[in-house]
Write a protein that binds this DNA or RNA. Structure first.
Length: 347
RNA sequence: GGUGGGGUGGCCGAGUGGCUAAUGGCAGCAGACUGUAAAUCUGCCGGGUUAACGCCCUACGAAGGUUCGAAUCCUUCCCCCACCA
């Protein structure tokens, strides 16, 4: 899923995303509530119409902002009070108000309001946040049901618990006790913990979630994380990396990351990735893309973002094929070996 | 011809006796980024040597001087800009 926090996947047009084969887009309840306002979006017929995307949309609840905007909020059992990063005004987010916001936005999948904490948090901290997330899930669920009234949205719970195995198991079981869910979010990963910890938790959580239900690893990730996640049962991913890194001059290639700002690409006639079929790689050289980037031309940001999103989308397409062929093990080993080997990117 | 202002590291531009190899910014070189406060942030950035600390050299238009010590003060010269003739 491409991340379009503010009702736009930065630098990309919905038509681009359709052509790339992107299937789903994320929006964000916190950001869209502050600007332009979820009620305004409701009055435009919902997020799909407002942003001109008729494919599926998922909205995040603002739980991640509890983590990322830590300095701007205070948390209590009732919810989170945010000091707006835009104008300093005070905004109260509770499970109930978040459900109303996400209802107004009208995404197909909406996430529960959860309490995200740093990845290295100790057990008591992680337990506190996990248990609060469970209680908030219950309140979200009640409010969701009350507001639903014939609307077709799916509410996803989110498994929290940090890197503590017993907490993760308790979270997953607590969630299952509280209902039957269309899909399951796995949150609080790739927020500062070590990668082996993330993989370990994923394997554990995978076993605790009904086999026939999609699981969504929130906020992940880099290409290697997608492959590792697929191997551990993850079905859905989202990440700002392809667009943010694109805007910051880094692109993904089969042979690892490539920083287009590097001087060595000044005269490089090759595409970003020789095996890539995206419209940037089909048409433009590294030298040209580097020129655009260093000249602060917005086309550069756009083409690099386009390439990165394409890279991840086609990576997942390859993964699906490998799964269907029963070759995902070999496929992933080969893919990871090549990506990590990082052969010389220049001749 | 006269009066006034000015020449600082690749560029712009602070600095008016020691804390100055010299603030900043740009450019350059490299790195980070994981449910987006991000077209952001971090590091390096005169030369030599060093893993680093450090040491040495060269530097604030040029030359000379004052001083324990000068980009900063004095003298002469060169060049640039503004205004007046």
């Amino acid at each position: 899923m491409a991340v379009g926090t503010q009702a736009t996947v930065k630098t990309l047009d919905p038509n681009d995303l359709r052509e790339l084969g992107a299937q789903m887009i994320l929006g964000n309840a916190y950001h869209l509530h502050l600007r332009p306002g979820d009620e305004l979006i409701r009055d435009f017929g919902g997020l799909h119409k407002f942003m001109g995307w008729d494919g599926p949309i998922l909205t995040d609840s603002g739980g991640f902002q509890v983590f990322s905007l830590e300095g701007l909020r205070t948390i209590s059992e009732n919810g989170a009070e945010f000091r707006s990063h835009l104008d300093g005004s005070l905004h109260s987010f509770t499970p109930e108000t978040v459900m109303a916001i996400e209802r107004n936005l009208g995404a197909d999948v909406i996430m529960q309001f959860d309490h995200v904490i740093p990845g290295q948090s100790d057990e008591p901290t992680a337990r506190d946040a996990m248990e609060r997330s469970l209680r908030w899930l219950e309140r979200c669920s009640v409010e969701f049901t009350r507001l639903e009234e014939g609307e077709r949205q799916a509410l996803f719970p989110i498994v929290q618990g940090g890197i503590h195995e017993s907490l993760r198991v308790a979270a997953a079981r607590g969630i299952r006790e509280r209902g039957d869910w269309v899909g399951y979010g796995i949150g609080g990963l790739s927020v500062g913990e070590a990668k082996p910890d993330m993989y370990r938790i994923l394997e554990l959580v995978d076993a605790e979630i009904p086999r026939d239900k999609p699981r969504y690893l929130m906020g992940v990730g880099f290409p290697e994380d997608l492959v590792e996640g697929v191997l551990r049962g993850v079905d859905l991913f989202d990440c700002v990396a392809p667009t943010r890194m694109g805007r910051n001059g880094t692109v993904f290639t089969r042979d690892g990351r490539l920083n287009i700002k590097r001087a060595e690409f000044r005269t490089d006639k090759r595409p970003l990735d020789e095996t890539c079929t995206c419209s940037a790689c089909r048409r433009f050289s590294r030298a040209y893309l580097r020129h655009l980037y260093t000249s602060d031309e917005t086309l550069g940001l756009r083409l690099l973002s386009l390439h990165n999103v394409h890279f991840l989308v086609s990576l997942m397409r390859d993964a699906r094929v490998a799964i269907q062929d029963g070759t995902v093990g070999a496929w992933s080993r080969e893919w990871l070996a090549r990506y990590h080997s990082r052969p010389v990117l220049t001749e």
